[in-house]
Design a protein around this nucleic acid. Structure first.
Length: 591
RNA sequence: GCCCCUAUAGUUUAAUGGAUAGAAUGUCAGGCUUCGAACCUGAAGAUGGGAGUUCGAUUCUCUCUGGGGGCACCA
């Protein structure tokens, strides 16, 4: 693609256009492949944009042009039409030569980057919001890695916070004698949700429980309720203290439940294709963090605030006040995040550290990075916030009991696709169906999670995510399966490819699209936005389907045309697979 | 109350300040004796209100309205 743009820019330079040249794509292919807008040059030349366009057109006619078929002024634009044969020859040749490496570059050679994700909590559920985090993280890892960076994917498990104390409190108080079910991690998540509910404000409780609604009006009863919540909270605080001091009363059950969570997460990560180079645990960082807080206090960067809590005043940077330590001495997220930043670089020496979390933590990360800056930590730190996964009914909330767990969604999608597959392929073995469907289900989910810009909230619609028509991973996989089928039925031809034969509009459009891939990869990396790849792979599949429906490949008029078209669809398959590869989506031979 | 993000067809969404605002889905009308119909073709359908900057604004600025998030003992 750069080759063509460079060629056009060179020509424009020759006819007197200097400086930065921006080329755009005309709104429709009949108007050319690339366009140069003449508004700025017109000002420079002191004529109207229409006149400038005409002048450029007239001047270009004097030059010999290699890849440009013709040039035409249209209003204030100069439109360039590329030679379809030259285009096809260069693009398809390059794809054939580079194969799996087509589209990527070496921009990251020698550079190292840490990517931390999904940094979830033990003792909690793994829901589809976490799934989105993993999908975005996976794709960023691929984007960096394939472009030559040395990548260290790492995880930070929050196994030591207040949520653990809540969960263990719920476990001990209400489920002590129960036998854990098979899915222990999910069970802990449920207990955590239940415990959170019991610890909420009394009026919130009353709204949830109709029977209590009347009691709120009764002052005496409401006070009782408040007393209970107060008592519950004290018990949780006590448990948290026990955990932090490694009290043998709680340590065994803490370590055991923690391990249940970790085991399950690892199972999920394996299924999703996540490979962490290192995992950090809050448990191991808390003490270091507390020492850092002491140090900050000594240096006068931090201060003692209300009730004896340790704070740091960032209001001169418009970042309010950050809390480093609770008044009862217990740590918070921030307490452990300070040493985490350093430990990460100690373990994996990198030039940049990227952390992926929900956008609700944007402000928190600004505070964290400012504090690290104040203590002289000068590594490049980047926070990528991804939008919430909401449901059609509203926000996911464990308290309201409308959280969609990743495992449940996967099972549902798998079952649906399996039913469809069995119907389509009655001759396939159970094993073949299962293998195939597991790839399809993963493709559908990963694609769906990356359809929209990472920073934007998405509304998850189970019906749409499981319909698999249109803008979906299965659409792309289906295009690939079609190409596979064609390639399988084709005969090997030794004829030299005649690129002049690929002159139909759909063919040229497809080739142009294939050429665009390099730009898309670059842009997705620059914007930390895998959804650009997702959209591209769909558009490319669509471009192929359009061509496929209008022109026959195996039954084309001549043998050399068959060969040329096979080359074209082979290239399309190659690029489709490459783009899905960046999204860590696998493909199937047939479906 | 203060701060940040956001507003595009019925719905989910795309568009470095540039040409006729691009898709998907849903609706309606069509297409398999033809390389795989999980596909394709066609139709109707959108920039929240107001002001400003500009030759030109979905894009930049201000304002109003609506939505989301954050703001010291949550993570």
């Amino acid at each position: 693609m750069e080759k063509f743009l460079g060629e056009i820019k060179k020509v424009l330079n020759k006819v007197g256009v200097s400086g930065e040249i921006d080329l755009t794509t005309p709104p429709n292919p009949e108007m050319g492949d690339f366009a140069f807008a003449c508004f700025n040059i017109a000002k420079e030349w002191k004529m109207s944009p229409v006149e400038a366009a005409k002048t450029i057109e007239a001047r270009i006619k004097n030059y010999e042009l290699r890849i440009i078929d013709r040039v035409q002024a249209m209003g204030p634009y100069v439109n360039f039409y590329l030679k379809a044969s030259e285009l096809a020859k260069i693009v398809l040749g390059e794809i054939q030569k580079k194969g799996k490496k087509y589209g990527i570059n070496n921009s990251g050679k020698g550079k190292k980057v840490l990517i931390e994700y999904p940094s979830n909590n033990t003792h909690k559920e793994f829901h589809i919001g976490h799934l989105r985090n993993v999908c975005i993280g996976n794709s960023l890892v691929q984007l960096y890695e394939q472009n030559g960076y040395k990548v260290y994917p790492v995880n930070y498990l929050n196994d030591f916070g207040n949520h653990v104390a809540k969960c263990l409190w719920g476990l001990i108080k209400f489920h002590k004698d129960e036998k854990p079910p098979a899915n222990k991690q999910k069970w802990l998540g449920e207990i955590y949700a239940e415990a959170s509910k019991k610890l909420t404000e009394p009026d919130a409780l009353a709204i949830k429980t109709p029977g209590l609604a009347e009691q709120v009006g009764d002052m005496g009863k409401a006070e009782d309720l408040e007393y209970t919540v107060q008592k519950y909270r004290e018990e949780v605080a006590e448990i948290q203290k026990q955990i932090e001091s490694q009290d043998p009363k709680i340590w065994k059950v803490f370590m055991q439940t923690r391990q249940w969570s970790i085991d399950k997460f690892e199972e999920i990560f394996k299924q999703l294709g996540v490979e962490h180079k290192a995992v950090f645990y809050e448990k191991d960082l808390k003490d270091k963090g507390q020492k850092m807080v002491d140090d900050l206090l000594k240096k006068g960067i931090a201060q003692v605030g209300e009730g004896g809590a340790i704070i740091i005043d960032l209001s001169e940077y418009k970042l309010d006040i950050a809390l480093l330590r609770k008044s009862n001495g217990a740590g918070l997220y921030l307490t452990s995040d300070l040493p985490l930043a350093m430990e990460k670089f100690k373990k994996c020496n990198a030039d940049e550290s990227i952390v992926i979390t929900g956008t609700e933590q944007n402000f928190y990360f600004k505070q964290l990075y400012k504090i690290l800056e104040l203590i002289g930590f000068n590594k490049k730190l980047t926070h990528i916030g991804y939008g919430l996964v909401n449901l059609k009914e509203g926000k996911m909330s464990s308290r309201l009991g409308n959280v969609i767990l990743y495992e449940d969604l996967y099972a549902e999608v798998f079952a649906m696709l399996k039913a469809e597959s069995v119907e389509r392929h009655p001759d396939w073995s159970e094993k073949k169906i299962n293998n195939n469907v597991s790839v399809l289900a993963m493709a559908a989910l990963k694609f769906d999670m990356q359809k929209h810009e990472a920073a934007k909230n998405i509304t998850f619609d189970a019906k749409e995510a499981t319909s698999f028509e249109g803008f979906s991973g299965l659409y792309v996989l289906y295009a690939i399966a079609r190409i596979n089928s064609i390639l399988k039925q084709s005969k090997k031809s030794k004829a030299k490819i005649d690129y002049n034969l690929l002159d139909k509009p759909e063919e040229k459009h497809l080739v142009l699209f294939l050429a665009k891939y390099e730009e898309v990869v670059k842009s997705a990396l620059m914007n930390y936005n895998p959804s650009e790849i997702t959209r591209y792979s769909f558009d490319l599949a669509q471009s192929f389907n359009d061509f496929y429906n209008k022109h026959s490949i195996l039954k084309a008029e001549t043998e050399s045309l068959v060969a040329a078209r096979l080359q074209l669809v082979g290239a399309a398959k190659n690029v489709l697979e490459n783009s899905l590869g960046l999204l860590t989506i696998g493909t199937v031979e047939e479906m």
